[in-house]
Amino acid sequence: MSIATHSPVRSIAAHAILIAYTAIALFPVLVIVVNSFKTRNAIFRSPLSLPDAETFSLIGYQTVWAQGDFILYFQNSLVVTVASLALVLLFGAMAAFALSEYRFRGNTLMGLYLALGIMIPIRLGTVAILQLMVASGLVNTLTALILVYTAQGLPLAVFILSEFMQQVSKDLKDAGRIDGLSEYHIFFRLVLPLVRPAMATVAVFTMIPIWNDLWFPLILAPAEETKTVTLGAQVFIGQFVTNWNAVLSALSLAILPVLVLYVIFSRQLIRGITAGAVK
C-alpha cells in the first residue's frame, strides 16, 4: 500500500487512485455549482455539461434573492460565529494560561473537568439547555447560540492552547515578573502574542462546526430574524423543493463562504491537524 515512487508503474497507480478519489470528492460539489447557472431545461436535459450562452441563466439566484432573506441569515451567522469565536479564544486562552502556568490545588482535576467536553457532545444536554434559555428569556436570540457555542468550543481550545503555552519560554515570563509586570500583563503582553499561531489553528477548528451547525439554530433560535445561513438554507430548500434553479442556487450560495474561508485557512487547518496528531 505504501507505494514507493521508485518505479513509474507505482507512481502512476498512486496518482490514478488519488485522481479518482479527488474526482469523487469534488464531483458532487461541481455538479451543484455548475447547474445553478443553467436554465431549468438545461439542468434536466444535460446535467453534466457546462452552461453555454444559450443555457446560462441566473433565474435561481434571482429567486433566492427575492424570496429568501439571505443577507440577514448571513449576518446572523457571522455575528454568532465571530462572537463565539472571540469568546472561545479569549476565555480559552485565559484558562489555558492558568492551567499551564500556575501550580495550585486541583489543577489536574480542573484540567480533566474542562477536557470532559471534548468527548461528551453538548447536544446531549439540549433538553435542559432549552429549559435554561426559556427561563432566562434567551430563546430566539443570537445570545443563546453564542453562549452554547462558546461552551462547546472551550474544552478543545483550552486543551490545545495549554499544550502550546507550556512551550513559551519560562525565562521570558520571569524576566517580566522581575521587571514588575503584573500577571495580567504577562499574559496579555508576553504570552498571548507568542501563541498566536496556535490561536489561529483553534479558530479554524472552532469556526467550522459553529458555522455549519443545524441542531441548535433549529431548537434555540428558529425565528425568522435569528435564522443562521445553515438553517435558512434548510428551510428555504424545504419550501422550494420543486424549484430546482432556486434550490441549486441556494446550495451554491451556502457552499461559497465556507469554500472561500477554507481556501484562505486550509494551510493553517492542515498544519493544525497534523501538529495535534503527532502528540
Binding site: 453538548i122 439540549t126 435542559a128 439547555i129 429549559q131 462547546q152 472551550l154
Partner: peptide, 13 residues
C-alpha cells in the same frame, strides 16, 4: 460558561 451551559444542563437532562 462551561459549567452553566454545558455541564449543568447535561446533568439536568
Amino acid at each position: 460558561i462551561y459549567t452553566a451551559v454545558m455541564i449543568l444542563p447535561l446533568f439536568g437532562t
